[in-house]
Structures are given as C-alpha cells and as structure tokens.
Design a binder for these strands. Structure first.
Lengths: 143, 143
DNA sequence: ATGGACCCTGGAGTTACTACAGGGTCAAGA
DNA sequence: TCTTGACCCTGTAGTAACTCCAGGGTCCAT
C-alpha cells in the first residue's frame, strides 16, 4: 500500500472503529468510497481519518447518524444560504449545551462518589439519579 | 387514577418518552413494574418519574443501557464494597470528562458558525470536522 | 350507552451497528 | 517456489434499543 495510504484495518485501529462499521458507513454514504489497490483493497488517506474520527465522536456523544450527516453536509459545502444553515446550527448549539450541563452534573456526582468511597470504604449514599432528575431545568419535557 | 399516580401516557409526556419505550424498559428490568389499577392499567408514582428521567438523559448522552443499568445498581444499593464501585465510578468519570471536552469543542465551532453566518450572510468556512479530529488528545485510539 | 381517547399484549419493522461464512490477496519464511 | 497466517473482499444474518401496528379492552364525557 502506497505511502500515506491506509488499509481498512489500519484506519480502524487509528480511529477505534470496527472494520465492518467502516464498510457500513461507506454503504450508507457517510464515508466516501476510497480508491482501491490492484488487489481490490480499500485504500484510505488522511481526510478519511479525520472524517471518520469526527463521525465516531459525534455518535459517541449521542447524536443520531442523521445529525452527523447534516453536520458533514455543512462541512462539505458551507457556502449555502444562511437561513438554511442557521436553524440547524442554533438547534444543535442548544442540544450541545444541554448535554454539557447534564454531563457536568453527572461528573460532579461521580466525583463526590469517588471521594466518598476513598474516605469511608463505602459509598453509603448515592444521589446519581437525583443529579439528572426533573427540577434541573427540565430540558425536553413538560407542556 | 389515584392522586399522585400517573398513567403510562402521562409519564411519557412528563419525561419525553414514548409509551412503547416505557413498556420496553419494564420488560428488560430497567424500570420496576408499577402497580396496576382495577382495569389493569399501569400506575406510576414520582420515583418512576425520576428514574425514567435519569435513564433517558443518560441514554441521550450516548451511554449504552448496560452503563445505565450499572449506574442504577449503584443508586439502588450504594452500600457495596468500595473496590467494586471504584473502578466503575472512575472509568465513567473519565468518559464523562472526555465527552464534555468534545462537546465544548463542538459548541465553540457551532458558536463560531452562528456568528459568521450573522455577519457575512454565508458560512464560507466550516471547521466542524477539525473540531473533533485527531491531535486534540486522541481519546480512544492509537496503539 | 356510545364514541373517542387511552390502555393492554404480542409481534413485526427500523436504526446502527456487529458477527459470521465462504472465498481472494499478500508478505514472510521454509 | 510454495505455503501459511494475517488481512481483505462480498453478502447475509444477528443484536441492541427502540418504534410501530393490529386486535382488542377500559374510561368517561356527552
């Protein structure tokens, strides 16, 4: 395989992705089909690494593939009328901020648990459910 | 339905959860089976609201049900030997912090896009993929 | 007493992977 | 040169976490 070019297995290792998942992303159009070697092996370049890393991270943050696709479209052709882009960007900004807030509450409680553990040898009380309960600005509920 | 008690539809609305999903969580043991009315309707109380809200939020943050289950177990019986609990808590603390870092980079780029849009009428350039690419401490890859 | 909104169970469909089965490619070593 | 083990190919089937639908019962406001 030519220098700079990666086999599917190498790409998988670099990005923490299963080989089957990479082929799946190609099939559904999330990743562009790469060049092939003489022996019909897929051959990836650095932009594939970046794109796949992005996809995997956004998925790991709980966004569906549909959202990933919208973000990739934005990156692929950013010179589109602003109205189209704006609602998308603002909506996602909103969701990102909600997730950050939830994760911070989760982190604080996990932190507390870790310290409590180290002191008493037992956890004794765990408020992890309360950390992400109603009252903390409800987010997506209640009419 | 007695005061304080909710039908499955009401619980769904309160927590932003589909009725079918609630029944699914009951079947796989994430939510305890609630009391039934004379007419065989499920009847939920306030602890169900809190528990389900927690489950939905943790899922929305990209954690699998297996992790949700582990967290719920921790909440249900926190008085367990610390060694057991510690690895779990620290591992999750780690993941939570990685997610927060990724979300903050995503937020910064979305923010930039929103402002760029408002100024030029076009987005012109979008670095959203770069925001979650390698280099930014790789996270879960590279041997 | 009846029509519409809501509930029940059980089973099929969807999304996003994940794991084979059956076979070809390739580099290293006997 | 030949072989053998690691890796690749396509295609299909299985899994996780929902989501939808069919066929039927409950509830209550008119």
């Amino acid at each position: 395989m030519a220098k700079q070019e990666l086999s599917i297995g190498a790409l998988g290792k670099l990005t923490g992705t299963k080989v089957e998942t990479i082929r799946f992303y190609e099939k559904i159009g999330i990743l562009p089909a790469p060049a092939r070697t003489a022996g019909n092996y897929r051959s990836y370049g650095h932009d594939h690494v970046r794109r796949l890393t992005f996809v995997r991270r956004v998925r790991d943050l709980g966004f569906p593939l549909e959202t990933v696709r919208a973000m990739l479209d934005l990156a692929d052709q950013p010179d589109r009328p602003c109205g189209e882009v704006d609602a998308l960007v603002l909506g996602q900004l909103n969701e990102v901020e909600r997730k950050i807030a939830d994760l911070e509450r989760l982190r604080d409680e996990l932190d507390r648990l870790a310290h409590q553990c180290r002191r008493g040898g037992r956890v004794a009380e765990c408020r992890i459910i309360e950390a992400l309960s109603p009252h903390h600005e409800d987010g997506h509920c209640c009419p």
